[in-house]
């Protein structure tokens, strides 16, 4: 029990490499997504109905299914590689979109106060009072499912989270002497917010963003499960998993492999998020 004997943790030195390996996984997925056309052995949408649900290693017609084939005889490996694109694009785009909109509105509300604050924060309240999943389902049902709409819907339902954190952080930052000084010296609101306030709150926002990133990957999968994800036949890990789960007992590879990829990606992103949080939160260093 000697390790427990020193409750005050010793400060960690810098960015330990060990702590950042999850980032390498994320980078790997990003690379796979970018270079999908060169990496994938086959067209991910090419069907082969006589080669349906074949186990890994099967050869059928022109296909050699390294990781098996799915319910339409498509190559699972190729679909996993291409599928990384959808999962990443949805997560990145929705996090960046909702993060930018939310943070900007939150900062402005906190800085301007008065009417702006009232309006923005009331709207935030409205959105936060509706369960995000339900709002997402309603809006996708209305807009029709597609890659762009899924991104828009996720951004629409998630921005209030950023707005709230940006708002509360800005409130405290705005009272700091040097921010007040900048404003007194005649700097415009935009300049004050983006030059002085933003750098101070970006840490807190990015902690939220990494958590949200993993959540968005799962959200996309959930929408696919409800038939509201990206349009078929586009491969996404979520849609592969949700159709493949019907074959759990007879063709485990159809769902298990994309499921594993999704799992590892979300895990890696969450671990990265933890690392970022610990780094920014001095208590844990």
């Amino acid at each position: 029990m000697s390790a427990v004997a020193s409750p005050r943790p010793h400060p960690r030195q810098g960015f330990g490499l060990r702590r950042w390996w999850p980032l390498a996984i994320v980078a790997l997925v990003v690379l796979a997504a970018i270079f999908a056309p060169w990496l994938a052995p086959y067209d991910p949408n090419q069907q082969n109905l006589i080669g349906r649900l074949k186990p890994p290693g099967t050869v059928s017609r022109a296909f050699h299914y390294w990781l098996g084939s799915d319910e339409l005889g498509r190559d699972v490996l190729s679909r996993i590689i291409y599928g990384s694109r959808v999962s990443l694009v949805v997560a990145f785009a929705s996090v960046i979109l909702s993060g930018t909109v939310g943070t900007t509105l939150g900062m402005i509300a906190a800085y301007r106060r008065g009417w702006t604050e009232t309006v923005v924060m009331r709207v935030v309240d409205v959105f936060l009072s509706i369960p995000a999943v339900l709002l997402a389902i309603i809006t996708v049902a209305v807009l029709g499912p597609s890659l762009v709409n899924v991104i828009l819907v996720l951004a629409l339902t998630r921005w209030p989270r950023y707005a709230r954190i940006a708002y509360s952080q800005t409130l405290s930052v705005a009272t700091m002497p040097y921010v007040r000084l900048a404003a007194l010296m005649g700097a415009g609101a935009t300049r004050v917010l983006f030059r002085h306030v933003l750098p101070n709150i970006i840490g807190a926002v990015s902690v939220v963003a990494t958590l949200e990133f993993g959540l968005m990957v799962l959200f996309e999968a959930g929408l696919s499960f409800l038939g509201l994800g990206v349009q078929p036949p586009t491969a996404s890990w979520g849609s592969m998993l949700s159709t493949g789960r019907n074959y759990v007992a007879t063709a485990w590879w159809v769902a298990t492999l994309p499921g594993l990829c999704l799992f590892v990606l979300v895990l890696a992103v969450n671990l990265t998020g933890d690392a970022v949080r610990d780094r920014l939160d001095p208590r844990f260093r």
Partner: peptide, 9 residues
């Protein structure tokens, strides 16, 4: 790990 798996799966 528990947090990284879609519930429908």
């Amino acid at each position: 790990a528990a947090q990284s798996m879609p519930t429908f799966w």
